[in-house]
Design a protein around this nucleic acid. Structure first.
Lengths: 161, 161
DNA sequence: TCATATCGTACCTGTTGAGTCCCATATCCC
DNA sequence: GGGATATGGGACTCAACAGGTACGATATGA
């Protein structure tokens, strides 16, 4: 339904937890599971993936654990989603060979641009910003930077909060 | 994988077909299936949904068929996605009761804004624009209107075409 | 009245996300 | 050096749902 996977959501919760506790040396999987109220096996699985994606660094052994590989301001949502569920492409069009209409598809080039716009929107959001609850002084601007939908229909209007 | 459903993609192809042939009175499901190279039952299913969503109007009986309910410029991608797969919310956060962390979740308010940004990006894209292949004089602006990602990491950079 | 079209619903099935488990491997402390 | 404790990597099961199909009901026009 045009949603990110639950696991991706959990992954962002975990990363946010790291960003919110910069004072702590390293967090192990068990601690994280307890503090985020997520199941331990799932947390372990996610942490492995995030290490593989180079967002976290791990340390084995007693007193081992995980910590952010770089500053929260240098990690954005597009990166996280890409690592946890692959490249951000809202259609399969751009994967060569999967679209029968590829040779003559008039929509393809426009989809590519839509994908780019969404990707850029997600790249603008850093982990540092997400970690700050009810942040109000920056966020409205992101929305405002998008051109206003002057001809928006009542259907989509009704979707807005 | 953060993608719209195949059916949604097909639906947009169908609507694009209508927008590309404004001279034709009405198109029936069989014609559309042939001309878009999509399976007939699937086309029929989609057309019904689009009628229900008030993007198409139907006419039964001999010489029946479908036509757009309003001008292509007055139909945008956000509307289409909403009709075919529900409200555009990339996380379940905003659906009350589905998130255990709701009372204390620090991420919630920021996700809502991210959703809004994506929704607005999709609202900017009208069917009229999609129907024009390789449209170059308007599209780059949409991307440019988003602030440039100055601190984008090499990972996401590599995703760009 | 019949042919032809949409309409509504119900059903089947393959895919995949979500969650779990096990064992190998690395590290630290005693 | 050896045991305790952590991560690393893979395989596995289960459930939900998108995708596709089928069939009868209903409306329209020749």
């Amino acid at each position: 339904m045009f949603r990110i996977a639950k696991l991706t959501d959990y992954g962002i919760v975990l990363l946010t937890h790291f960003a919110s506790h910069p004072e702590r040396e390293a967090l192990n999987a068990r601690e994280l599971a307890q503090e985020t109220h997520l199941p331990f096996p799932t947390v372990g699985k996610l942490l492995k993936t995030l290490v593989h994606g180079e967002l976290l660094v791990s340390h084995r052994g007693i007193n081992g654990g995980y910590r952010l590989a770089r500053r929260p301001a240098d990690i954005n949502v597009a990166q996280i989603i890409t690592i946890l569920e692959g490249p951000i492409e809202i259609t399969e069009c751009n994967t060569p060979g999967t679209c029968e209409q590829e040779p003559c598809c008039p929509v393809q080039s426009n989809w590519r641009l839509i994908n780019g716009a969404i990707r850029e929107a997600l790249e603008k959001v850093t982990l540092a910003e997400i970690a700050i609850p009810k942040h109000t002084n920056r966020w409205p601007q992101v929305s405002a930077m998008l051109p206003s939908a002057g001809h928006a229909h009542e259907l989509t209007r009704s979707l807005e909060p």
